[in-house]
């Protein structure tokens, strides 16, 4: 059970930040709000930023910019998103619970929370995405994931280099709408490769040796093995560490093979 004492619609990001920092422990920004009910939290201030116009999807100056308030569902339906990166953004979120849920969950809420099982973070990491905070400014997503987080700050947008990268996504789920047992995103721009593995069950991380292997033409098989070796895996309800490691080799290989073939929809 959660409790909220004050529900506030700030009129600006500045006000939102002020509210948040006025009572750091007792306040929280509401993104989609979907996980709110899971925690037993007592919030003195719920800061709803859904009316600050952060829900834009823009293509500008070589970047695709997703406002923090963009819902996951829009990643599946907005042509500016589905037409890029082999459609990976929409595809990678399409198994998350259901349409109604994805109509609520936001890009900002998902990325900010750095949840281990996140399909979206896995994908964004493979696309060299950057995150924009109101106060801390812009930083690489990887940097943010490795940091201690940005308490008291507000994530306003996610920026992805609009560089024509192709990307492929693989995940395994015990049932179709479950959290992934493992999530893998691989992207490629020429011979520049990215390999990202999430739900290990830890939050997504890049497999740099696998990337290097692919970049030097070492092949998908070897890249899969390397990713399995270099990353840390763990156990939870859904699967054990050993299984996840084996799975990582397979899914990384498959995603890389898809790109070797020229991307999604290209056979043979």
């Amino acid at each position: 059970m959660y409790r909220i004492e004050n529900y506030v619609f700030p009129s600006s990001l500045e006000e939102a930040c002020r509210l948040l920092n006025g009572d750091l422990r007792g306040s929280a920004v509401l993104g989609g709000g979907c996980w709110l009910r899971l925690g037993r939290r007592h919030l003195r201030n719920a800061v709803d930023i859904s009316r600050l116009g952060l829900d834009g999807i823009e293509e500008k100056e070589g970047w695709l910019e997703l406002g923090a308030g963009v819902t996951l569902r829009r990643l599946e339906t907005d042509l500016a998103v589905t037409g890029r990166f082999g459609g990976i953004l929409g595809r990678s979120v399409s198994s998350i619970v259901g349409v109604q849920f994805r109509n609520m969950v936001t890009v900002g809420g998902t990325v900010y929370a750095r949840l281990g099982f996140s399909d979206l973070i896995t994908t964004l990491l493979s696309l060299d995405a950057r995150v924009v905070f109101y106060r801390a400014g812009e930083m690489g997503l990887g940097e943010y994931l490795a940091s201690n987080g940005c308490p008291g700050d507000i994530l306003t947008a996610v920026r992805i280099p609009d560089d024509g990268r192709q990307a492929a996504y693989e995940s395994l789920r015990r049932s179709r709408t479950d959290f992934p047992v493992l999530a893998v995103a691989v992207s490629r721009l020429g011979e520049d490769w990215r390999v990202s593995v999430g739900a290990r069950p830890f939050v997504a991380a890049r497999a740099e040796r696998a990337e290097a292997c692919l970049s030097r033409g070492g092949g998908a098989d070897q890249a899969g093995e390397l990713a399995a070796q270099e990353l840390r895996f763990g156990s939870n309800l859904r699967a054990g560490e050993d299984y996840r490691r084996k799975l990582a080799a397979v899914l990384v290989r498959r995603a890389a093979q898809t790109l070797e073939r020229g991307g999604e929809g290209c056979e043979g």
């Binding site: 395994l172 015990r174 047992v181 699967a239 054990g240 050993d242 299984y243 084996k246 799975l247």
Partner: peptide, 11 residues
């Protein structure tokens, strides 16, 4: 029957 049981069994 889980994927994990099957894969470990197959190995």
């Amino acid at each position: 029957i889980t994927p994990e049981k099957l894969l470990m069994g197959l190995e």
